[in-house]
Structures are given as structure tokens and as C-alpha cells.
Design a protein around this nucleic acid. Sequence first.
DNA 1: GTTCTGACTATGT
DNA 2: CACATAGCCAGAA
Length: 146
Amino acid sequence: MPRTDEAESFFYAVYSAIQEIPHGKVTSYGHIAALIGTPQRPRQVGVCLKHLSADPSLPHHNGNVPWQRVINSKGIISPRAEPMTRGHPSGAANQAQVLRGEGVTVRTGNLGELMVDFAEYGWFPRQLPSDEAAGLDPHIMSDDED
DNA sequence: GTTCTGACTATGT
DNA sequence: CACATAGCCAGAA
């Protein structure tokens, strides 16, 4: 559990936002941070995912929070080791597998990076300055739900 | 108590 | 294009 009430509410907000990502879509850590009003803390979003538990009795766990739909701003599944996080494997390779399982095409680059095409699978319900710079239009918004 | 690390990103060279 | 730096802040050491 987070140490402070403030951190706990942040965790809650992160998990809630991630639960809004439609099945078969992906978004970035930064976008989740922006959605919950803390655009300066994409890193903490990663911390939240890392701490996801497998315990189904908890309000948020890796069975009801689609952690696999969060990747970095470059469209790459953030590389990291493959530890057992709270009972389940959490490595990038595993994440790619789970994403493919919901119909997302994950390409493998020459350096082994696992990439997802934002133009096809990206979910960005808000227009951010960085989106404009990237030439993305608001119409990519999707309303599909699980 | 302090210091280091990192599922990140925007910006500057 | 690529690399470096500055913010960020919860956890771990």
C-alpha cells in the first residue's frame, strides 16, 4: 500500500483512468498522468503499475486493471526485467503477449523493442499539445468499452 | 535520517 | 536523427 493518503488517492486515480482504456487500445504513461491532472508525473504512473497486486480481493489488481494497455510515449512497450510482480509475470515480453491476445499488433524492432502503432491502436481522449505536435487528430478517440 | 533507482517525458544540443 | 539533461517522486537500499 502507498504510504500516504495523498499517494493512495493518486494510485486510485491512476488505476481508475487505466480502466477506461478500451479493449484492444493502448495509451501512454504520460497521457494517463495528464488525464488525472498530474502531467508532470508519468513516472509515478509506472510505479503504480509495478505495484499492482494479483489479489482479487483488492479494489484494484492486475485482473481488473488493464496494465498491458499502457506503453511509453514512443509507442514502445517499456523494457524492464521480467520479475514476478505480486504473483504474475510483468515483463515487456509478457505484456506484448497479452496485448496480442486482445488483437493488438505488436511489432518487434531490430533491437528487440516491442512497438505498437499509435495511429491504429492509440487511445487519447484528450487533445494534448504533444498530440498536435505529432500530427494526431482528435478523431482517433474511441468509445469502445470492454 | 540520506541516497539511489526507475513500467517516463519534454526540451535542448 | 541521436544523445544528454532536468524535472518528477514513491520505493528500496
